[in-house]
Simulated scan of single mutants.
Amino acid sequence: MASITIIGAGPGGLTCARILQRHGVPVTVYDRDPSPDARNQGGTLDLRAEDGQLALREAGLHEEFLRLARPEGQEMRQYGARGELLFHAVPEAGELVKPEIDRGQLRDLLLDSLEPGTVRWGRALESVGGSGELRFADGTTVETDLVVGADGAFSRVRPAVSDAVPQYSGVSFREAWFSEVEQRHPDLVELVGGGSAAAADGDRGLFAQRNSGGHIRVYVIQRAPVDWIAASGLTIADTEGIRARLLESYAAWSPRLRRILTDNDGPYVDRPIFALPVPHTWTHNPAVTLLGDAAHAMPPLGVGVNLAMLDGCELALALAHHASVGEAVRAYEATMLPRSAQMQKMTEGGAEFLLSAEVPDFGYGEQS
């Protein structure tokens, strides 16, 4: 039986591995992190019925997902820079179009579903040969019939099939964390509600989202050079220095919104937004393929993880149902590449959308 190797233990790679194992196809996943708990997995995300949830159904994990998911997280609020509520979308009772789940919870759900030893931690990939030869940073090598690059926007697998590299969008996020929010940050709880809240003035924005466990994450969104922190004579650890710069930039905003910039717990996390060229395609290689951000990194508009999981699902099913790996990869790419190209075009320049003062159309639920 063919050997399948996935690089990257994110939602897309793990979804692919889980569905392969359900169909009796052996698979190994390698990840550069030394352990599953080596770093924080990030905030919350919505899993859509037509892709992320579809993949979980194929993985046999949809019921477990629903036990963890937060349907109330579908609530959305849009504010003006003066703090006025412009739009409020509330999900209907029983609405499960795109319930929220913490990234860490989703990853644990997928990891726990795999056979013991499937994921090999602390294995940083160095390079991939055109016929599927893997070379790791520790000097070891692995021969495999198929390498699946599920290792994100700055994939080490992608150079085996494509010369494309992610480009900086001109927009950066500063991520801020708030803990024990019901007790310590009640004003922010009132502002955000059960789901997410956004505000923008055309040049800068804020996006706050409820997480489980009494946490809220806020993304401070600005146009800025990719190295603006260093260029300002600061480091990411200089919380007070960065906060002073942000307060200056948001000086015209309401005091209620500006408190998001002053009350966060701990340091900021710098997250410049990169995206691959549009469209990103490659010449078919029966020994190497890509999924998720490795294949189609886009601005963070709620589609990335969903598409990664759908990619992983479709690739696994193709491998399970085709006579050869090469045929399976060709069938997968024949569907995935046009879909991702279409979505890349739809989201191109989407980082600018995050700064728009226009009220978005959330497309469901009650509005006020």
Results as ranks from 00 to 15, higher is better:
residue 322 H to W: 10
residue 367 Q to S: 11
residue 312 G to F: 05
residue 240 E to Y: 03
residue 282 W to M: 02
residue 163 D to R: 07
residue 146 L to T: 05
residue 140 T to Q: 12
residue 63 E to M: 00
residue 156 R to E: 07
residue 330 R to M: 04
residue 274 F to D: 03
residue 272 P to G: 03
residue 240 E to W: 06
residue 132 G to E: 13
residue 138 D to T: 12
residue 36 P to Y: 02
residue 33 D to R: 02
residue 283 T to M: 07
residue 69 A to P: 02
residue 138 D to E: 02
residue 61 L to Q: 01
residue 18 R to C: 15
residue 115 E to W: 06
residue 122 G to E: 11
residue 341 A to L: 06
residue 63 E to F: 00
residue 163 D to Q: 05
residue 27 V to T: 01
residue 335 T to W: 14
residue 68 L to M: 09
residue 120 R to D: 09
residue 304 G to V: 07
residue 248 E to H: 15
residue 59 A to W: 09
residue 127 S to L: 07
residue 269 V to N: 10
residue 81 A to H: 13
residue 163 D to K: 04
residue 108 D to W: 11
residue 98 K to A: 15
residue 60 G to F: 06
residue 133 E to V: 14
residue 363 G to Q: 06
residue 281 T to G: 11
residue 114 L to P: 02
residue 101 I to Y: 06
residue 316 A to K: 04
residue 354 L to P: 08
residue 129 G to T: 02
residue 65 F to I: 05
residue 137 A to Q: 11
residue 364 Y to M: 11
residue 220 V to W: 01
residue 225 P to T: 08
residue 317 L to Y: 03
residue 58 E to H: 15
residue 227 D to K: 13
residue 340 S to E: 01
residue 201 D to N: 14
residue 174 R to V: 05
residue 241 G to E: 08
residue 96 L to M: 14
residue 346 M to F: 09
residue 302 G to M: 09
residue 289 T to I: 00
residue 212 S to Y: 09
residue 120 R to E: 10
residue 353 F to D: 15
residue 228 W to H: 14
residue 318 A to K: 02
residue 264 N to E: 01
residue 245 R to I: 03
residue 244 A to S: 15
residue 76 M to L: 09
residue 211 N to P: 00
residue 354 L to N: 13
residue 133 E to N: 13
residue 245 R to Y: 03
residue 365 G to M: 04
residue 68 L to Q: 10
residue 197 A to P: 02
residue 144 T to S: 14
residue 63 E to V: 00
residue 137 A to S: 11
residue 277 P to T: 14
residue 112 D to Q: 12
residue 207 F to S: 07
residue 97 V to S: 10
residue 125 L to W: 07
residue 155 S to F: 10
residue 26 P to G: 05
residue 195 G to K: 07
residue 155 S to E: 13
residue 66 L to M: 15
residue 174 R to N: 05
residue 355 L to D: 06
residue 358 E to C: 04
residue 32 R to C: 11
residue 124 A to L: 12
residue 56 L to A: 13
residue 258 R to F: 07
residue 178 F to M: 08
residue 213 G to S: 12
residue 119 V to S: 14
residue 237 A to Y: 10
residue 23 H to C: 05
residue 347 T to P: 01
residue 200 A to T: 07
residue 192 V to Y: 09
residue 272 P to F: 08
residue 282 W to V: 00
residue 211 N to D: 07
residue 267 P to F: 15
residue 56 L to H: 12
residue 322 H to F: 12
residue 105 Q to W: 09
residue 120 R to N: 06
residue 216 I to G: 01
residue 17 A to P: 08
residue 94 G to T: 09
residue 170 G to T: 04
residue 166 P to S: 05
